[in-house]
Amino acid sequence: MSLKAATKVSMLLGQCVPCLKQNTSKFKVKRLELDENLLMYFKKDEFVYAHDPENKCKTGDIVLMEQLPQKKTRLVTHAVKEVIYPFGDITDPLTGKKVVAGKYRDHIEAVTKVYGQTKNGFKYDKAPLRGWQENKKDFTHADTYIKYHDDGKDQPYAV
């Protein structure tokens, strides 16, 4: 049984990965492929490009995409519909509260308040949204590579 190609499905859920193209985001779509010999499903990643003129997807976001009635280019077959889970800023779908790992953010803050909040500690209401350290100290928005040439210039994406 062969799998229908990801680009031919009308709606897709994928994770955003770094992409250099303008007005376009690249997504990793996880699919399950049947191994006929073992009769078991195995994970298979496919990459889909989606039209994203407002650049609302950031690396790591879980995004719902919709198929375009007409292909934009040879690669761009989908358009971004909705960012479902922004990366590192998860909202619990049942209660609508913000979640950090296994705890509610409210609970963490309540505990902190009981002990007495310090002045320097991290505060959610004052923290800016994701992206203010981009290209300064956080280089996750682009692919890194192993440094292969020493040209004397600064190479921020070289590891």
Binding site: G60, D89, F122, A127
Partner: peptide, 16 residues
């Protein structure tokens, strides 16, 4: 890496 996945704002604040 874990902190980035759990809480991006705190991650950025911390590395800064």
């Amino acid at each position: 890496k874990y902190l980035r996945r759990w809480d991006y704002r705190k991650f950025e604040w911390l590395i800064e």
